[in-house]
Design a protein around this nucleic acid. Structure first.
Length: 257
DNA sequence: AATGTGAGCAACCGCAGGCTG
DNA sequence: ACAGCCTGCGGTTGCTCACAT
């Protein structure tokens, strides 16, 4: 395959964009859209290659782009998603409205990598959850009982059990009046990639603010059903999710919000 | 005031993969 | 099936600016 000549050989401009060039590109795209990037610069009267135009539009000029510094929440989200997706910046960007892959990549290399370097994960972090292999409901009830009656759980002010049961699933989650449990729930949901979209639609600040786990679980349950997640390929992962249990000692390790 | 240095970020480069004729 | 075109992605570069010396 013959590679197209580079911009310089074609006599096209490289380097930073001038305000005039930006103006030409914006007004052209506003009038005509950007169907064919390769043809665009010629039609718009720009001495740039299509690739450069596309990059400038996608990373800087598009009205969809959110300008300004990243919030703490956005940074946390990036760290979270990076754990899940690695350096798949576009996948991360698609979950952060208004942010570009380039921007996320930059912030990762300049800020977040350093931030993580200073962060020491808790010991035995792999043992956050206990998987219950046999007789799910009996085992989990046993765990819940010991959880509820553990005397040295001072950080958990009150506890109740929220259960959603129907033909195909049973979710049992200890509920605390503070927000710590919410972090664990989020981690569980995050651990399964294909729940991402569902999580985004369900995981709202409102739930976190109101600590409304019963409602969350109900909605999650309905969502699982509607997504038809109980057949074939996802079966193992569903089992994996519903066999999670949150251990008392892990709750006590969680940082204050 | 001049120079050095490092951080931040916009832009470039090369490649992969999808699409089309 | 194949070649060429186009787009999108991730790694990298290099410019700019702020701060230190």
């Amino acid at each position: 395959m013959v590679r197209a000549p580079c911009c310089e050989k074609m006599g096209l401009k490289k380097g930073p964009w001038s305000p005039e060039e930006d103006e030409i590109l914006i007004s052209y795209i506003q009038r005509n859209g950007h169907g064919n990037w390769r043809a665009l610069p010629k039609q718009a009267g720009l001495l740039r290659c299509g690739k450069s135009c596309r990059l400038r539009w996608m990373n800087y000029l598009s009205p969809d782009i959110k300008r300004g510094n990243f919030t703490k929440e956005e940074e946390d989200t990036i760290i979270h998603l990076h754990e899940k997706f690695g350096n798949r910046w576009s996948a991360i960007a698609s979950r952060l409205p208004g942010r570009t892959d380039n921007e996320i990549k930059n912030i990762w290399h300049t800020h977040l990598k350093k931030r993580l370097k200073n962060y020491q994960p808790p010991q035995n972090s792999k043992g956050h959850y206990k998987k219950i292999n046999s007789d799910f409901s009996t085992s989990i009830q046993h765990e819940i009982n010991s959880f509820v009656h553990t005397p040295n759980s001072p950080q958990i002010s009150t506890t109740e059990i929220s259960t959603v049961t129907d033909d195909s699933l049973s979710v049992i989650i200890p509920v605390t009046t503070d927000n710590r449990i919410m972090i664990k729930l989020e981690e569980i949901m995050d651990s399964l990639e294909y729940f991402t979209e569902m999580q985004e639609s369900l995981w709202t600040d409102e739930f976190a603010m109101n600590n409304d786990i019963s409602n969350f679980v109900t909605m999650a349950s309905e969502e699982f059903q509607s997504l038809d997640m109980f057949n074939t390929t996802m079966e193992d992962d569903m089992d994996f999710l519903f066999n999670f249990f949150i251990r008392t000692e892990d709750l006590q390790e969680l940082p204050e919000l």
